[in-house]
Design a protein around this nucleic acid. Structure first.
Length: 422
DNA sequence: GCGACAG
DNA sequence: ATCTTGTCGC
């Protein structure tokens, strides 16, 4: 009997009492400046013959940033999931305060005067990384523009004015009226806003700051063999609802037979966009919440598989490394596409086979083909407290479908939950 | 010049 | 990641 007994009814019953809900609503939120609030939307046992726990309502979940485990002592720790006891977490790194990139982007665009122009790439540079250009381009296409906004002054490289939400003609007319166009209809290169102007709007570019934090994570990462063969494997993945809210699922799988034992789903608002290389800042909060909730329910994986890269990352600090460092637990990153690195031997051909992935002349990951020999491989790299070999070995241990079982279930369950209303 | 670029 | 129709396969 199972270690899983900790997911018994009593603990959850205490959470469900109306009195506790009241306590929650009276909690002074100002007391927790960097707190992340999540909602548990499902806790399930998947073992046949075992009572299934379905949470009927939504419970608040509070994840304190790691340095702030103190406020748990308010007597609410039976109600709130406070990131666990302080011994659970590595106190060395704190979750950084996330910038409001959309507000920063609006500020940059507002700073483009009439008659002047800029490009997505230059705006991205001003935010701190050219990689943000893709998101900016999409934002400009989707965001509802007003007569007073300056979004029409963002053009494409090479003279093409480019789209503008659904009204390219309006954009063209305004630019012509502002004198930024040449007679042939292309935009005037001399109208380009100098870099310094945008730089002065955001003297400390937010993405550059986040990069500095990634370097801290990189320094904290330890790649080492796993002490013991893992008995339980965890998997986390995130999906997004129609209103953009993030939903994460943690799935607990028994390594010996690959069976899904338990799952936990949490939800929280999400403001940070997807930018290649910065996925951690989009998904870390909701994933930390899911894993913390799992911990409080007694689910402690010996190895956590994350849907995202580990050290196979431009700064060797992918999502899985962030999770590992913040939780102080062994993590492995698993992706469906390669973010960086090369395959000197190509992809493995045989079912269940592996081939190395090299980054900067060093084997930093492994390409795995499933035991069923699926056409598409996965790309595995250690996140933290595990090495390349062990990470790949235990990822391959429960891998009968296209994705490792942990990731398969987390993907499926989070997606299903994100499509539900609420 | 064009594509690539975890989710 | 999400948006979508039909289509292929077990």
């Amino acid at each position: 009997m199972p270690r899983r007994r900790s997911l018994h009814a009593t603990r959850w019953d205490s959470i469900r009492s109306p009195g506790d809900q009241d306590k929650w609503s009276r909690l002074p939120m100002q007391a927790f400046p960097t707190i992340t609030i999540s909602t548990i939307i499902a806790v399930r046992s998947h073992r046949a013959g075992v009572v299934r726990f379905e949470s009927p309502g939504y419970f608040p979940l509070v994840l304190l940033s790691m340095k702030q485990a103190q406020p748990c002592g308010t007597g609410l720790d039976s109600v709130l999931f406070c990131g666990g006891a302080s011994a659970d977490v590595s106190p060395s790194l704190d979750i950084p305060e996330l910038p409001d990139l959309e507000a920063d982007l609006r500020a940059l665009i507002a700073a483009i005067p009439a008659g002047k122009l800029t490009t997505c790439g230059m705006l991205a540079e001003a935010l701190g990384d050219r990689a943000a250009a893709v998101w900016i381009g999409r934002w400009l296409q989707e965001h509802a523009h007003h007569d007073s906004c300056h979004c029409h002054r963002v053009v494409r490289v090479g003279g093409v004015v480019g789209g503008y939400a659904r009204d390219a003609a309006f954009k063209l007319a305004r630019l012509r009226a502002e004198g930024a166009l040449l007679p042939d209809g292309s935009w005037n290169p001399e109208a380009l806003l100098p870099r310094e102007v945008l730089h002065s709007v955001l003297p400390s570019p937010p993405l550059a700051e986040l990069r500095r934090w990634q370097e801290e994570v990189r320094r904290a990462v330890r790649l080492q063999p796993l002490a013991n063969p893992p008995e339980y494997l965890g998997g986390v993945d995130a999906s997004y609802g129609v209103r953009g809210e993030a939903v994460a699922a943690y799935c607990h799988v028994r390594r010996s037979d690959g069976q899904l034992l338990e799952s936990i789903v949490v939800r929280q608002p999400c403001r940070f966009p997807y930018i290649s290389g910065y996925l951690a800042f989009r998904e870390l909060p909701v994933m930390l919440a899911a894993v913390s909730a799992a911990r409080r329910a007694g689910l402690r994986p010996d190895l956590l598989l994350v849907d995202g890269a580990g050290v196979l990352h431009p700064r060797r600090a992918g999502l899985a490394s962030h999770l590992g460092v913040l939780l102080g637990t062994p993590t492995v990153g698993v992706t469906k596409k390669l973010l960086c690195g090369t395959l000197p031997q190509g992809e493995p051909q045989l079912p269940g086979a592996a081939s190395p992935i090299v980054l900067d002349g060093e084997t930093m990951g492994v390409c795995l083909r499933s035991q069923s020999g699926h056409a598409r491989c996965v790309y595995v790299s250690p996140g933290h407290l595990v090495d390349v070999t062990d990470g790949a070995t235990w990822t391959a241990a429960c891998f009968p479908r296209r994705l490792p079982e942990t990731i398969y279930w987390a993907d499926r369950i989070s997606r299903q939950a994100s499509r539900r209303p609420g």
